[in-house]
Design a protein around this nucleic acid. Structure first.
Lengths: 343, 343
DNA sequence: CTGAAAGCGCTTACAG
DNA sequence: CTGAAAGCGCTTACAG
């Protein structure tokens, strides 16, 4: 592979001059520029990003550590992140933690070793020593979706409180009283917040959330199945299951179906996070939709602000309830069943 | 951030010695090793991967360029790739082409600039000059899923011919005669192969595949909707739509539902690529399942073989038909409706 | 406008 | 076993 030396030789100039034209430094003669460009063409020269990074101490790369790529929510988030980063001249390297703190640390470490310019994290846990060290060491960082309390890092996330209240109101209107939740890990903010919001909203309606109706999941399908099985084995099973993410909702559907039960007749179901498939499931699933793309873009902007020396801002966007048929009656307000979340 | 010099100073040795203990070079005294380890601990030193790469001319990184991260098939593929790569001591950087040749080239270029050790590609098109150049220049490369004909690069893929024959047989058995396909881009191998396999299988049953029943899609949901609308507008619409990937099947479901029609009563549907949601759609979708994880792992092994100087092998695995209810009668052989593809 | 030179943080023959 | 030195491919003050 041709190096800058080869280009310099071919163009009859010094490597400094080649570097200057490559970096569009103004003080290069038109003639020199010409010859360098020609040599670059001829040799098919491409600057070695590794060498450049070593020299300039910047990689123009962002690290994104997400909890689970297989979760469509995070996939969409990752896509938006990459898109916005590309627009701002950055690449992004994705690390998939698979909801495992050890894997998360592995990726953070690898990313740090590669000297990425900044880190976007959706923490799988309450904050490992490694993560905390990275913050303390001054690594530009921004949390997306989930965050670690007590740490001085901007957070870009959706607030689902209102939407959860809307959901509970919707459920009460349909006559449901025994509501259960499949929660995410308590160590994650989204894990605990969604339960809290649910419990608080229920309280407003004078409904208790008994422990038996609070299942501990891990945001993955398997736990959704397990917890749902537990609910269904109860002497008095709940009338509604609210899954704190779409994968656990999938697991819940698996479990319900395995028993030959029907949604919503035998048991109602709702989920946090909306995905295109929820329109086509049997029945269509009522869900709380996050502005996922906007979250990803805002997170990148905050991180790049931080990297480039501008003050980064935390951002909180609203989530919203999308009523479908999985809790009972279809929403009378919904104009067409195929309508997609476009707003 | 501490550098190797700092460690050397703290340990009272030269940087060469530090480097040796870091790389587990045998000829280091126990004493020196001891002191270096301690210094590394104290300083929280982590070697700069950028500098190491520049020096050793290897990044221990694989590039993976896929056509669409939002497609669950590719997400799963990417996950398997990362897993196997990690097991073999490599990181992977994913580039999402979004089915756009220009974006694909962008990522290939970026990856090459970063001097990744090898490239895993599922080409969006028939092969851009850039891609061809990269092959010619000797970049270790392996194609996964899709490939570029006439290029000397190992291919790891699933052969869907048999499964498509099984599908067509299944459709005929159910009495369907007018079968239509939503094809992928003709420039992709999977785009053309699936149509060919479908047409050939139909021919065996004496069925023609008229042009009107061959819709041109691009593997994305929008095209599935458009093509399906076209089919449904035909004076004599097909009885079955076979979508060449799961996203176009989603689009087809959207379009069918928008007209208030029902699957399979009004029109039957089948898809290439199986995803967990197909179990829960209304109705459950008959699909051709690829051994996605195994493809990803085999592709990584082939690429790493190539990188490390061993002869890489092409791999072809079989896809298989998973019958559900979207084409008519449920499969009588299926023991339980929730059964997941585990084999 | 241009080039020689230093230096980014490593690794690795080469001597000792 | 150990260190001094060269060099990977760049960029960037510093002189001219």
């Amino acid at each position: 592979m041709a190096s800058i030396k080869d280009v310099a030789a071919a163009a009859g100039v010094s490597v400094a001059t080649v570097s200057r034209v490559l970096n569009e430094h103004p003080s290069v003669s038109a003639d020199a520029r010409q010859r360098v460009m020609a040599a670059v063409q001829d040799l098919g020269y491409r600057p070695n990003a590794v060498a450049r990074s070593l020299r300039t101490d910047q990689t123009r790369t962002l690290g994104l550590v997400i909890s689970d790529v297989l979760n469509p929510y995070f996939t969409e988030l990752a896509r938006a992140v990459e898109e916005e980063a590309r627009a701002l001249g950055y690449s992004v390297i994705i690390g998939n933690a698979d909801e495992r703190p050890d894997l998360q640390d592995h990726h953070v470490r690898t990313l740090l070793d590669r000297r990425i310019d900044g880190l976007l994290v959706s923490p799988t846990d309450g904050g490992s020593p490694l993560m905390l060290d990275a913050v303390r060491a001054g690594t530009p960082m921004v949390f997306v979706d989930r965050w670690i309390p007590g740490v001085q890092v901007p957070v870009v996330r959706a607030d689902g409180r209102e939407a959860v209240r809307d959901l509970v109101a919707h459920l009460c209107r349909l006559g449901h009283r025994r509501l259960a939740i499949i929660a995410g890990p308590a160590a994650t903010t989204t894990g605990s917040e969604r339960v809290d919001a649910f419990r608080d909203a229920m309280a407003e309606h004078g409904l208790p959330l008994p422990d038996a109706y609070t299942g501990q999941g891990d945001f993955q399908a398997g736990s959704g199945r397990r917890v749902t099985d537990g609910f269904l084995d109860l002497p008095e099973p709940p009338e509604v299951i609210f899954a704190a993410d779409n994968l656990m909702a999938l697991g819940a559907l698996d479990a319900v179906r395995a028993r030959g039960l029907r949604v919503p007749d035998d048991i109602a179901l709702a989920a946090f996070d909306d995905i295109p498939w929820f329109v086509h499931t049997d029945p269509p699933v009522t869900a709380i939709a996050q502005p996922t793309g906007e979250l990803g873009r805002a997170a990148v902007r905050a991180l790049v602000d931080r990297i480039e020396g501008r003050p980064p801002a935390s951002v909180t966007l609203a989530a919203r309830l999308v009523v479908r048929r999985s809790c009972g009656e279809a929403a009378p307000s919904s104009p067409s069943p195929v309508q997609r979340s476009t707003s």
